[in-house]
Design a protein around this nucleic acid. Structure first.
Length: 419
RNA sequence: GGAGAGAUGCCAGAGCGGUUGAAUGGGGCGGUCUCGAAAACCGUUGAGGGGUUUCCCCUCCGAGGGUUCGAAUCCCUCUCUCUCCGCCA
């Protein structure tokens, strides 16, 4: 969440922000301000009453221990206690309202984010490599996979339904190789520590990274246990340090983890219905950073470079896109997408999304660090990015490395992993 | 799933219902001593929030309710952890 003080000091800034994010009118800021004012008034008033209660109760204790009469004082406390009770109830109701709205407010935007309505206004910041030339008509990965009998969508449907798939033989092995290659690259060359954590998390975790409460429809939740299947390893990784105070020396802290990711893909009916591009379960290697605030934008550039390096070593053409204000996710202040070239689909496909969340997630999840001994803890900045989505990487390898006879050449960097 | 035990500050570990935000020990930090270090001794060391913001106040002893003028201490519910049994990749 954003700093509540911003609401008091500069409400126009937030109004403008919502405008840029195409969210104007979605949130009643004036009502929120009113609730906050009432809320703080109630806090101040109960504070006074409690102070009275503490003082008088001590007085009562003192008199009783001396055997003196305290009946008058006890009588006096009845009114005070009734007042506290009423104000507590009011405060609780106001706090709930306030937090609900606050949690659904999006993050601030960095000034470098271009203004725009939707993905058409995103800015391409660079291209790497070139589109490969084929002396035949390149096929989409799902056709290649069907012909080689390594991607089985029919049986995926039989087992779990639409948008599920089965890998057989080479595809299963190739994806495993891709994941291992990516993890090794990030841990041995980019300084990330490999983590393995649960794929199922509690609501506090989902709130911490911003999935809940606003976007509940997009995830699988096991109601009976109050747990959710993670849509990305960002959730367990970022929440590793929820409710903790880190030492300055621990920063910057880089972690990576491979996981399956589960998404309902609500609202994307009819989109990317074939193949591996949009499915309910896919594997991904995620990169997460905890850093000092001053460094977070530099760290974002390095994070994108770490993700790009995967495609460079695979020698696959891609471009990097800076998302515009209307397309950046609610939690993020600035996001770069890496889009890989898919010759069979004849378009670029998002394969990584790298974001700087500033203190938005850290405030929700209470992830702090000690700037200097004796000082109050400060919020860290968190970042994350895919490094990369494994299923889409598999599809990209299949399409870019396909041969005229319908086979796939294994990229050099993956060969050690295919022995 | 069955039976039992427990949940207190960075850690360990006390805490007749009243002045306990919390004894004591350890650790950390600062100091004395020392050529330096160790030892010893002295001091200091949680977080969140509100305000009339060099200071004052409120809240927090797993979470949520309740009893009471007053709860870390009493009652209820929940969660989690540990031990034993059962089951099991």
């Amino acid at each position: 969440m954003i700093d509540p003080k911003l609401l008091r000091d500069n409400i126009d800034y937030i109004k403008e922000l919502l405008q840029k994010r195409n969210m104007a009118g979605a949130i009643d800021l004036d009502a929120l301000k009113r609730i906050d004012d009432e809320r703080r008034a109630a806090i101040a008033k109960t504070g006074e009453l409690r102070e009275t209660r503490n003082r008088v109760s001590k007085e009562i204790g003192g008199r009783k221990s001396k055997g003196e009469d305290a009946a008058a004082l006890m009588k006096e406390m009845e009114g005070v206690n009734a007042g506290i009770k009423d104000l507590d109830a009011l405060q609780e109701s106001l706090n709930t309202q306030f937090n609900d709205i606050l949690l659904s407010l999006p993050n601030v935007l960095d000034s470098s984010v271009p203004e725009g309505k939707d993905e058409n206004d995103n800015k391409v910041v660079r291209y790497w490599g070139e589109k490969p030339k084929f002396d035949f008509e390149p096929k989409p990965h799902f056709d290649i996979g069907a012909e080689l009998n390594i991607l089985d969508f029919e049986r995926g449907v039989k087992l779990a339904g639409a948008r599920f798939y089965v890998y057989r033989g080479l595809a299963a092995r190739l994806e495993r190789a891709i994941i291992n290659f990516m993890l090794d690259l990030h841990t041995t060359e980019h300084g990330y520590t490999e983590i393995f954590a649960p794929f199922i998390v509690n609501d506090d975790s989902m709130i911490g990274t911003g999935q809940y409460p606003k976007f509940k429809d997009e995830y699988y939740r096991i109601e009976r246990d109050g747990l959710s299947l993670i849509p990305t390893a960002e959730v367990p990784l970022t929440n590793l340090y929820r409710d903790e105070i880190l030492e300055k020396e621990q920063l910057p802290l880089y972690v990576t983890m491979q996981s399956s990711c589960f998404r309902r893909e609500a609202g994307s009916a009819g989109k990317d219905t074939r193949g591996l591009v949009r499915v309910h379960q896919f594997q991904k290697v995620e990169l997460v950073k905890f850093v000092e605030p001053e460094t977070s934008f530099d760290e974002l550039e390095k994070l994108v470079a770490n993700a790009e390096e995967v495609l460079r070593r695979l020698n696959i053409h891609y471009r990097v896109v800076l998302l515009c204000s209307g397309d950046v996710s609610a939690s993020s202040a600035k996001t770069y997408d890496i889009e890989v070239w898919m010759p069979g689909l004849d378009r670029y496909v998002e394969i990584s999304s790298c974001s700087n969340f500033l203190d938005y997630q850290a405030r929700r999840a209470r992830i702090r660090y000690r700037r200097a001994k004796g000082e109050k803890p400060a919020l860290v900045h968190t970042l994350n990015g895919s490094g990369l989505a494994a299923g889409r990487t598999l599809a990209a390898v299949m399409e870019n490395y396909q041969t005229a006879d319908g086979a796939i050449t294994i990229p050099d960097v993956l060969r050690p992993y295919m022995k």
